[in-house]
Design a protein around this nucleic acid. Structure first.
Lengths: 316, 316
DNA sequence: GTCAGGTATAGATTATAATCTATGAGTTAT
DNA sequence: ATAACTCATAGATTATAATCTATACCTGAC
C-alpha cells in the first residue's frame, strides 16, 4: 500500500461510503457526483492493493481489509482532532511556553505576576532565565526567549520595550550607622563610606554612577558583590552601605535602615522587552495581556506604570 | 488546520526536517532540492495555520506546535504501519475469513480438514454454513460464501469445481435384517423393503434414484427423513433400509450392517466449488492450498481424489 | 418489459501538488 | 574579505488529484 497516492480527502470519502453503505448516497452527502465517488474508491483500492468494498447485486459489502482500514482511519482522524484541540489551546494562550529572561533584580518582582498567571494557565510552561544585564542582553541578541525584563531597556533594532513598573532606588545603611542620626542628608555625605555595589552593567549601578558623575562626586571606596542578597547581608553586618531597588527590600525593616537623601531621587523603571522581528508565542502574548490587565492588583498600584498596550499592538 | 491541503508526503518531509534539524540535509536525504523542502514546510505551516519550525541564525528550532505535530505524525504513521502488517497477514492468508457453505453430508468429512487448518491459521475466521443442496445452491447464486462443498457440482456459469474426495455409497440394513443372511445380493432384491431417504435434491438420493431409474426399478415404499443421523437411528431400530455415504458411517459397526450389493457400485465425489466471477479471499485461497497439500494426511489416502490444482490456477 | 435506482467506464477539464532552476540574502569559518 | 554553507523567494514546468458530463450496464420492482 502506497500512502503517497492516498489523500485525506480520499479517506474521508471512503469512510462516508462505509458509513452509508452506498456510493450514490455518499455522493449526495458530500455534494459530489456518483462517478467521482466510484473513482475515488477505485483509486483507494488501487493504492491499498486490496479490495475494500464489494458490490454484489446492488448491495455494497465492506471487506475485511475495508473494515480494518475504516478503523485505522477513525484512529487517524481522531489523532488529528486531538492535534486540532491542542492547536486551539495553543492559539488561545492556554497551552505552550513563554520563556522569560530577566535581570537579577527582577526576580523579586516578577514572581508576583508569574504565580497568579501560572495558576490561571496551568498548561503554559514558564521557564525563567535569570542573569545579569550582559547575559540577558546576549540572550536577547540570540533571540532565546519570548520576553525579556530589563530596567534600562536596550535601544537595539528589533527591540520593543514597554514600561510596567516604577523602580525606586533606596540607600540602605547598617542599623547603627552614624548617618541614621542625621537629618537632611545629602548625597555627598555618603561618598566617604564604603559602597557595596553590583557588577558594572547592573542597571542599578549604572544609574547610581551616572548620578554621581553628573554631580562630580566620586566614591572613596567600593566593593563589588555578586548578588543583592549578599549586599543586604553585608550591609546588615556593617560592611558598608548600598543602593538597592525598593522592590528587593523586605517590607519590614530588618537589620538595616533606609536613608532618606533629600537631594537625590534615583529611580528607573521595569520594562518588558520583546523582539519585533520574531513571532511572539501565543503563550507570551497571553502572559502580556494578563500582565496588562492585572499589574495593579499583583504589584501594587502605587508602583505600576502600565504601558503594555504598546506591545499588544505589535502583530508578528 | 485544513487536512485537505496536507498530504502524507508533506508530513513525511516535515518529519524528516524535524529529525535532521535541517532543510538542506532533508533535501539531500529525500533526493529533493532545498527549495522544494523549504516550500513544503511553508505550505504545511500554512495548512496548519501555525509556525512549526523557526529559523534563527542558521539554526532550526521546532515550535511547540511542530513538536506536537511530529508526535501526531508518528502515531498516524504507526497506525498505517499496523494496517500494512494487517494487510500482509491478510494477503498471506494468515488472517481474514473463509466462509464455507456445504451440503449436510459434508459435515462429516470437512471438519477433518478444517480442524488442522484452523490450528495452523488461528487468525482466520472459518464460518460454516450447512444446508441441503437447494440451500447451498441458493447461497452460491447469491455469492454469499467463499467456498462451496457439493457432491454433484452445479454446472452453472461462473462455477469452477474441483474434486477432492471419493464418496462411496453403502446400503445399510438393521443388524437382524433378513438380507444379512443372503450372499450375492442384487439391487432388485432391495426394492421391496422400505427405504429411508433424504429429501429430493440430496445428492445421495439423486444418485440412487437415477441408478434405479436407469435399471427400471421402483421402490415399493420410501420415507423421507430430515437428517443422516435420523436415518441411521431409524435403520438401527428396524424402520427400514437406506443408502448412505461411507463417510457418514461410524468406523465400527453399530446397530446396523452394511450390505454388499454385487451388481451396484454407487459412488459420487466431493467437490470444492468457487465462483470464477468473484475475488477469492486470501484466506479461502490459503485454505484451498492447505487442502491440496494435506488431503491425504487428514482424509485418508484411499478416498482422496486430489484435483484441487484446477482451482489454484484461477487468478481473480 | 420497462423503469428506476445503483454502479462502472470513458473522456475531458481544472486545480493544485510537487518539483525544478536561478537567484538573493544571511551566517560562519578561514 | 571571501568561500562555503544555510535558507527563502520567484518563476516555470509537470504530474496527478479531483472533479465533471455522458453513457452503458446491472438488478429489482411494477
Amino acid at each position: 500500500m502506497d500512502l503517497r497516492h492516498i489523500s485525506f480527502r480520499l479517506l474521508e470519502v471512503f469512510m462516508s461510503v462505509v458509513k452509508t453503505g452506498s456510493i450514490s448516497e455518499t455522493a449526495r452527502n458530500l455534494h459530489l457526483t456518483q462517478p467521482t465517488v466510484s473513482l475515488q474508491i477505485k483509486r483507494l483500492q488501487e493504492a491499498v492493493g486490496e479490495p475494500l468494498v464489494l458490490m454484489h447485486q446492488q448491495k455494497l459489502t465492506v471487506t475485511e481489509a475495508g473494515v480494518e482500514l475504516f478503523k485505522t482511519c477513525q484512529q487517524v482522524f481522531g489523532k488529528f482532532d486531538d492535534y486540532k484541540d491542542f492547536l486551539a489551546e495553543l492559539k488561545g494562550g492556554e497551552r505552550g511556553r513563554c520563556k522569560i529572561a530577566m535581570v537579577n533584580t527582577a526576580q523579586y518582582i516578577l514572581p508576583k505576576l508569574l504565580g497568579p498567571y501560572s495558576n490561571r494557565h496551568p498548561h503554559v510552561e514558564l521557564p525563567l532565565e535569570i542573569g545579569n544585564r550582559a547575559e540577558v542582553l546576549a540572550r536577547f541578541e540570540r533571540g532565546e526567549d519570548d520576553i525579556y525584563v530589563f530596567s534600562h531597556p536596550p535601544s537595539l533594532e528589533h527591540a520593543k520595550a514597554a514600561r510596567f513598573l516604577h523602580n525606586p532606588l533606596e540607600f540602605i545603611v547598617p542599623r547603627d550607622h552614624p548617618l541614621t542620626k542625621e537629618q537632611n542628608i545629602k548625597l555627598e555625605q555618603l561618598t566617604p563610606y564604603r559602597f557595596l555595589l553590583r557588577e558594572p552593567g547592573s542597571a542599578t549601578r549604572m544609574l547610581f554612577e551616572s548620578e554621581l558623575q553628573s554631580r562630580g562626586l566620586v566614591l572613596s571606596d567600593s566593593v563589588q558583590m555578586r548578588s543583592n542578597e549578599a549586599i543586604r547581608v553585608a550591609v546588615s553586618s556593617g560592611m558598608g552601605i548600598a543602593v538597592l531597588s525598593r522592590h528587593v527590600l523586605p517590607n519590614e525593616g530588618g537589620e538595616f535602615k533606609v536613608l532618606s537623601v533629600v537631594d537625590t531621587n534615583l529611580a528607573s523603571h521595569w520594562y518588558f522587552v520583546i523582539r519585533t522581528d520574531r513571532h511572539l508565542s501565543h503563550a507570551a502574548r497571553s502572559f502580556l495581556q494578563f500582565a496588562e490587565k492585572h499589574l495593579e492588583l499583583y504589584l501594587g498600584a502605587q508602583w505600576v506604570r502600565n504601558e503594555l498596550s504598546q506591545l499588544s499592538s505589535i502583530e508578528i
